[in-house]
Simulated scan of single mutants.
Amino acid sequence: MSVIVTPLNPRDVPAVKQFLIAGLSERWGAYESRYNPDIELFQSYYADSLTLVAKSAGVVVGTGTLHPISARRAEIVRMSTAIDSRRHGVAGQILMLLLDHARARGVQEVVLETTSSWASAIAFYTKHGFAKTHEQDGDTHFIRRLGAA
């Protein structure tokens, strides 16, 4: 599978939003916009963030966003990979590029959360060096401390 990962281009915002909605619909059986205001206002909500988009043959197959919390801390949000692109290294490639970007910006800690029942997501983040910090309201929270760039 040939995949190209690039920063979000404004013309790709509609496709990325649809991709995220499809992923949430797959996981939850439906998508409810009221629970996802960041997706509804994606471009403005994540204007100060880095969103990476993975494409294969021009089609979005993965995405992830590094959202700054402070000068030394950032959060990874909206990581998603298409069903037929899973286990091909797409998510790992996106994650490593987001972490590289964080290091280059002087970020020392990256946090994230995922639904506690999503065993594959928990295994993925653990495999990539994230440590579980706690569980709350059905979500598992992680942290990864970064070294210098």
Rank of each mutant, 00 (worst) to 15 (best):
W118Y: 12
V61L: 05
I83H: 13
R105L: 13
K132G: 04
E109N: 12
S85C: 10
A102I: 03
A91Y: 02
A104E: 13
A102N: 05
A91P: 03
E113W: 07
R86P: 04
G64L: 05
R78Y: 08
H88E: 14
R105G: 02
V59T: 15
I122R: 15
T114C: 14
H67L: 12
S80I: 00
K127F: 04
H88N: 09
R103P: 00
A82P: 04
S116P: 05
H134Y: 12
G89T: 03
V111H: 06
V61W: 05
Q108V: 07
T133L: 13
T133F: 06
L112A: 09
I76D: 04
H134K: 13
V107E: 02
R72H: 12
I76A: 06
T126F: 03
G58S: 07
E113S: 14
F124V: 07
F142V: 09
A123S: 14
F124A: 08
Q93R: 11
K127P: 00
E75P: 01
A71T: 10
E113H: 14
R145A: 09
V107K: 03
Y125N: 07
S80Q: 15
S120T: 13
G89A: 08
L99H: 00
A71P: 00
G92K: 01
A91C: 07
T81D: 06
G138F: 09
V111F: 01
L98V: 01
P68K: 10
I94E: 04
D137C: 03
A91N: 05
A131L: 13
L95I: 01
I69F: 05
V111L: 11
S117K: 10
S70Y: 03
L66V: 07
R72M: 08
L99R: 00
T81I: 09
K132Q: 14
Q108A: 11
F130L: 05
D100G: 07
S116W: 04
D137T: 07
H128W: 12
A104T: 11
W118M: 15
M79I: 11
L97M: 14
T140Q: 06
S85Q: 10
P68S: 10
G138Q: 09
H101S: 13
R73K: 15
E75G: 02
D84H: 14
F142S: 11
F124T: 06
D84R: 11
R87C: 10
F142A: 11
Q93W: 00
D137F: 09
S70E: 11
T140P: 01
I94L: 12
V111I: 15
G62E: 08
H141D: 02
S85N: 11
S116H: 02
T63V: 14
A74C: 08
M96R: 13
H128D: 03
H67R: 14
H141M: 06
